[in-house]
Design a protein around this nucleic acid. Structure first.
Lengths: 128, 128
DNA sequence: TAACTGAGTTACTAAAGGGTAACCTAACTA
DNA sequence: TAGTTAGGTTACCCTTTAGTAACTCAGTTA
């Protein structure tokens, strides 16, 4: 598990340690849409491997941004959800997405959007 | 130079390609405080090496987030500033910082903040 | 009896990212 | 004459991050 430093010179560095890397922001984004099971996340993000998915979810859980609930059944059922604190990042993620969309439009980059601003706007009152 | 893909499934992925990594968000943050020269940035972020600083600034420039202005003098003077589009990210960066500060407080992580929300609030009207 | 299920783990390998130290230019200073 | 300045470049190496393939478990279906 990636250990955080005991001291940071800038909050930005802490945020990078918490949600940096190729997958974490994406995972938080999709979990903010609703709770998801392990293989559900695999289907939502087909490019991620099982190893990376487990590893990144475990780190997010270790840092208190994601909650992992295991149902003692066979075959097992494990549900991932964002914690209250993880959810507080949603407006930031939404801002990032909007900015990314603007950039894509400006530069003519094609976007097969896996999100719609609409989804966010409908739940905005719960978050802000 | 890191090349962008011609197509993205999610804006988040594009954003990660644009500002991911160890230094870019930090550089944008400091450039949003005001234009800075090369060695000024080195002093502001003492941990960054010359190589990394050049490389990351060049990528930000290549993607249109940062502007590089060379004054033909000896010794040379080079000033970096954020572009209008780069500046549009500031509310997002500010949100990240706030969230990071909250996390640090919650977890008892020490923060020798290199930023104050105050700086941002004073200029907010220009940005939002 | 064999194959399948969901949710992983493990060992190994490949690629990306980042760091170190030496070097460059032209003009100025000691 | 040597050293300093600002703003870099280059070659090399090491570490971190990510990917591949095989394996696990206990129960259920064909």
């Amino acid at each position: 598990m990636k250990e955080l430093q005991s001291e940071y010179q800038c909050a930005i560095n802490l945020v990078i340690d918490l949600i940096g890397g190729k997958w974490k922001v994406l995972l938080l984004w999709h979990l903010n849409e609703g709770d998801k099971r392990f293989n559900e996340l695999r289907r939502t993000i087909p490019e991620i491997t099982k190893k990376m998915l487990t590893q990144q979810l475990r780190e997010l859980e270790g840092h208190g941004l994601v909650k992992r609930t295991v149902f003692e059944e066979v075959p097992p059922r494990v549900v991932y959800s964002t914690t209250d604190f993880g959810r507080k990042l949603q407006p930031v993620l939404y801002g990032m997405c909007q900015w990314g969309d603007d950039y894509a439009e400006k530069e003519g980059i094609q976007m097969n959007s896996c999100w719609t601003g609409q989804d966010f706007m409908e739940n905005k009152s719960d978050l802000l």
